[in-house]
Write a protein that binds this DNA or RNA. Structure first.
Lengths: 111, 111
DNA sequence: TTGACGTGCAATGCAATGGTTGCACCAGTG
DNA sequence: CACTGGTGCAACCATTGCATTGCACGTCAA
């Protein structure tokens, strides 16, 4: 479970995608990929409230895409790159399987 | 735009994820990765109506994840593996960048 | 041509989601 | 201690999204 070749498991993929499928959340995640930050900090240069940001961060955390780090009285969030890598790996594996199978079917249909 | 190394562009990623972030849609997509099928066929062995399935398929089509193929009076949908591959590639690139940057920051903070 | 099947479109109901504000609480700092 | 700043929790509202049913249209087969 700690190797770099681990996968998320097909069951959890939709959940992860649901977390990534919101513009604000995606923007926040990208921002956290730059450097860790707190909900208050993130909300500062954004048109939405601190609570709204915190809610998004919680969703990302539940999806395993972000981790928290206590720093005094503030909670800093950081993106977990390895999770995204695992996601990418799973996707690619699926895609390859489909491509192969469907190519076979298509060839059979045309032949 | 037709090579196997193309990417989707960061802007369209959340949209694609939103399409993938629904359980029913994900299940349908996996089913289409097995073999092409029509909305009616797909709805047959599923607890939801044909119209609901059709709506999901439309979402997937708009996200560029499936393509249609007219066969007589029926519309068959097939999964587009290359799209998923492109998505995987984009994700992996982002993840790598984050991992590298955040590692640097973390090292600086601990040192 | 008639009947049956596959689609598409529209109106509707209900649940989930994303946003807000207000308040209470804890942890550092003067 | 008093104050300030960052969190967390709760109530509430508006919008979106998923599913439904009903109907109309086109197309293939008997």
């Amino acid at each position: 479970m700690t190797t770099s070749t681990e996968t998320l498991g097909v069951e959890s993929l939709p959940a992860a995608f649901a977390a990534l499928g919101d513009d604000t959340r995606w923007e926040l995640l990208q921002r956290l990929g730059t450097a860790p930050a707190s909900a208050t900090t993130l909300a500062a240069d954004r048109p939405i409230s601190r609570q709204a940001v915190a809610r998004h961060l919680e969703v990302l955390r539940e999806a395993g895409l972000v981790e928290t780090e206590i720093h005094g009285r503030e909670v800093r969030y950081r993106a977990i790159g390895s999770r995204l890598s695992a996601l990418a790996r799973d996707l690619d594996l699926l895609a390859q399987g489909w491509e192969r199978r469907l190519r076979t079917i298509k060839a059979a249909a045309e032949g």
